[in-house]
Design a protein around this nucleic acid. Structure first.
Length: 532
RNA sequence: GACCGCUUAGCUCAGCUGGUAGAGCAACUGACUUUUAAUCAGUAGGUCGAGGGUUCGAAUCCCUCAGCGGUCACCA
């Protein structure tokens, strides 16, 4: 079986395997000197982690999982935080904006935490990243740029950059506009006086001494070593520096960074390295196929997705065709959840080559825990929730067990999570659309009668009895047999605020006899119609 | 301007290395239930953006064009 899987892996054309193969090729199938194949993702800590962060780590993990199938070379995933970057503008929705304003252009690790919970702004956001990633169970190692610079880990690479200063400058220039070309430098000195990351021309370089000379903000000519965290590399060279110093073997990036990564690759070549493989994924679009922008507030946030669906479904969504632009809006969620469920349920019975076509294989690294299986689709749950007034998990579970008597929250924990999401969906999308009305005379009489009948029943009355009482209440209060449909509709409209509903006897059984009586009396008192 | 993606059923999309077009929703029909919804079974629906080329054979590969969209060119 294992051999069969390995064979299937070698022939698999799913994108994570295509990527993994390019890593294996880069390594010539051998463990590199550092002892492992290194997969990297980048993070800018001036903002909070978002769906793009998730997507990149999830997809890189999928490549890594494929790689593990192809080779016994150890692997490592590094989430690198560019936390020595200067803060360029005050982000919105952050406390203490005046304080941040005063600290503009300083490295993020040198700026106090506006939330006043961590050592610095960067530390705060780095921790948010770590919490975020841990929440999804990613296996990775966090790495801070500031630490790499100040600890000397980047020193050798920085000196090499200095030796090749002009060539690296030339590698970047073609991409820049006229204005920027004049002052561009791959090195950004950090002013010893103000602590700011300066974007200034470099006047002299001294490869022997390992220093650069520039004019500080007050006009004073200043000489600084490029090593030890006194100087930061500008963005594109910084990327190359990291690839070189850490010996990165794989990194993907968005299409927006396409030309930048090419430049960084050229710089890496100058340093004597070889650009790590990695494709450029397309960015997410909104419902109309337009760019998602925070200012417009279109598209869908990570939080929104995770409110209405489990994170596995997002991982599944993100697996699909990373190189084409995908629309990210509410309606894709239920589909993603149900596709995920079918793939999870299918995996065990699939042949190895089919397993490797199965997104769930990548999400769970080949082995799906039993707890992930669910006998009910998410679409069904959503329908059930809205049809059955399921404003809590217990009610919804009651209806589920009508269909699947064996399922319990304990035996199907993933389904239990889905139930929670379905209830949330009900609260946010179904409940607000409910329109209760008051009953007319005949309806009122029948409902009062129904309440009284229910009251007279034992607490453990059987379903048949309940259903019979509902019919009797209708029939004996002026509804002819062919009018009974109207009686039921009245129940839904008056009691549930909708035109349709579940079989009413079952509803009472699940909702509870006492609760149903209260529901009827509240409706007759006008509590619902008034509120609406 | 440079580079890229998309165009397939009413809607949203899948179709991997070429072999008589698929799914979900919507629609329609039926079954079941002392109402509906749900559920289940089934039906219908497409010159695969246009034109050309390669091939015994093209939604799939190549070229041209059109429409839509994206990214970069100021900052990272």
């Amino acid at each position: 079986m294992s051999d069969e899987l390995k064979n299937a892996a070698e022939n698999c054309r799913a994108w994570p395997f295509e990527e993994a193969k390019s890593v294996l090729k880069r390594l010539n199938g051998k463990t590199p000197d550092k002892g492992y194949a290194l997969f990297e993702t980048g993070y800018g800590p001036s903002g909070l982690p978002h769906i793009g962060t998730f997507q990149e780590v999830a997809r890189t993990t999928m490549v890594m999982n494929a790689f593990k199938q192809l080779s016994d070379i150890p692997t490592k995933l590094i989430c690198f935080s560019d936390d020595m970057d200067g803060l360029r503008k005050v982000p919105p929705n952050v406390p203490n904006p005046e304080m941040l304003e005063k600290n503009l252009h300083k490295p993020l690790t040198k700026i106090p935490d506006p939330f006043e919970t961590h050592e610095s702004f960067a530390h705060h956001n780095n921790n948010r990243l770590i919490d975020f990633l841990d929440r999804f169970g990613f296996e990775y190692e966090f790495l801070s740029s500031t630490e790499c610079y100040t600890s000397g880990r980047f020193d050798e690479a920085l000196l090499k950059m200095l030796q090749n200063y002009e060539a690296i400058r030339q590698a970047v220039l073609p991409l820049l506009g006229e204005e920027r070309k004049k002052t561009y430098s791959p090195f950004l000195p950090i002013s010893p006086k103000s602590g700011k990351v300066l974007q200034v021309p470099i006047l002299e370089t001294s490869p022997e001494a390992g220093t650069i000379v520039f004019e500080d903000e007050d006009g004073e000519k200043t000489e600084l070593p490029v090593t030890g965290g006194h100087v930061k590399a500008q963005w594109r060279p910084d990327w190359a520096l990291r690839w070189y110093a850490l010996d990165v073997d794989y990194e993907m990036a968005g299409v927006d960074l396409k030309s930048a990564s090419e430049i960084a690759g050229n710089i890496l070549k100058i340093l004597g390295g070889k650009k790590p493989p990695g494709f450029h994924y397309e960015l997410f679009l909104d419902e109309n196929g337009e760019k998602i922008s925070k200012s417009k507030g279109n598209g869908l946030t990570m939080e929104e997705w995770l409110t209405y669906a489990p994170h596995e479904s997002l991982a599944h969504y993100v697996f699909q065709r990373p190189k084409s632009g995908k629309k990210l809006y509410f309606d894709v969620i239920p589909k993603a959840v149900d596709e995920y469920i079918s793939f999870v349920n299918a995996l065990a019975s699939q042949e190895p080559d089919k397993q490797l076509q199965n997104p769930a294989w990548y999400i769970h690294n080949g082995t799906i825990p039993n707890s992930q299986h669910t006998p009910v689709s998410f679409a069904l749950l959503l329908n059930l929730a809205s049809a059955a007034n399921a404003d809590n998990a217990e009610t919804l579970w009651g209806f589920i067990q009508k269909h699947k008597p064996d399922a319990t929250p304990e035996s199907a924990p993933f389904l239990d999570r889905l139930v929670g999401h379905a209830v949330k969906y009900y609260e946010d999308f179904v409940l607000p659309t409910k329109q209760y009305r008051l009953p007319d005379e005949r309806e009122r009489a029948a409902m009062e009668d129904l309440a009284a009948r229910l009251d007279a029943l034992p607490a453990d009355a059987a379903l048949d009895a309940l259903q019979t009482e509902v019919f009797s209440a209708g029939k004996e209060n002026g509804y002819a047999k062919e009018e009974l449909r109207e009686w039921f509709q009245a129940l839904y409209q008056v009691l549930l605020g909708q035109d349709q509903g579940p079989r009413f006897g079952s509803f009472i059984e699940l909702y509870g006899i006492k609760e149903s009586i209260t529901l009827i009396r509240d409706a007759l008192d006008g509590k619902f119609a008034q509120a609406a």
